[in-house]
Design a protein around this nucleic acid. Structure first.
Lengths: 139, 139
DNA sequence: CAATTACTTGAGAGTTGCTCTCAATAGCTT
DNA sequence: AAGCTATTGAGAGCAACTCTCAAGTAATTG
């Protein structure tokens, strides 16, 4: 059994967020000790894991709650849960491809700045002939 | 020259967000027509592109403003901008690897549900012998 | 054994980055 | 002229945290 602090470190989710998620009903099986302190079991960690996964992919909390509730209902909801997981997978894949697209832009910029740095250190800054005119700055 | 609606469609960013970004000072060169309507130039689209890129990777708006301001200052800030782009690239790479990690979990779940669906349709649900005991539901 | 330190709790305020609503204005169409 | 379509800025609303705080408990230390 783990305290919220231990879970926070183990799963790399802030204690605040874990409490917020708990209040949102994302961890239905959490026990408390005699002092009302939350104690997470290994099984509870699995719930943290799936919630973190869904949030990482950008699922909103309402949809996460829906998924949790489906799990609690039981076997009759398996095909709906299967659909949710599939849709989430697709979303994750789209995000990967979007990210790799943005990485291309970042690499282009990186090279652009690298070149500028090389040139700048080579030229004589004090020579007015090296002044470059620009209509508008570039991002 | 493009209206905000055209830019919204071209760049896949909502008009609301574009206005919000404009108000935040992310597009320093935007012109207006005689009716105060914003007109984006091709160069302005480049600013939209880089802002969208930085936001996609999760850069906060304050840091984006800092980057924009550095661009406006000019050549003396190239090495700082280079650093920002490098750090952003790293962040994007981390996010890719986090996403692909989460994709693994999603694939595992997908297979798990796929198997359950196959079994469920094969067994006789009305046979009490097929009742499976579970201590706690699983996410 | 009182005091300090280290956690934990829930309530609730504050923050970020949108997102949406609205009234005012302008141009185009019939 | 009336209707339709855009655009604008101001400002309300929202999601998902994030942070602050007072209160409670437990272990440690002087």
């Amino acid at each position: 059994m783990f305290t919220i602090k231990e879970v926070s470190e183990k799963m790399d989710v802030s204690e605040h967020t874990l409490r917020f998620w708990a209040k949102s009903g994302f961890f239905p099986f959490i026990k408390r000790d005699q002092n009302n302190v939350r104690l997470f079991s290994e099984n509870d960690l699995e719930w943290v894991k799936i919630v973190k996964c869904l949030r990482t992919v950008g699922t909103d909390n309402k949809s996460i709650k829906r998924y949790i509730d489906l799990c609690l209902i039981g076997d009759s909801t398996i095909s709906e849960r299967y659909g949710i997981i599939q849709a989430t997978k697709q979303k994750a894949e789209q995000q990967m491809s979007e990210l790799s697209h943005q990485l291309e832009l970042l690499e282009y910029k990186e090279n652009y700045y690298k070149k500028l740095l090389k040139n700048n250190s080579a030229v004589d800054e004090w020579n007015p002939m090296n002044k470059v005119k620009e209509e508008e700055s570039i991002a």
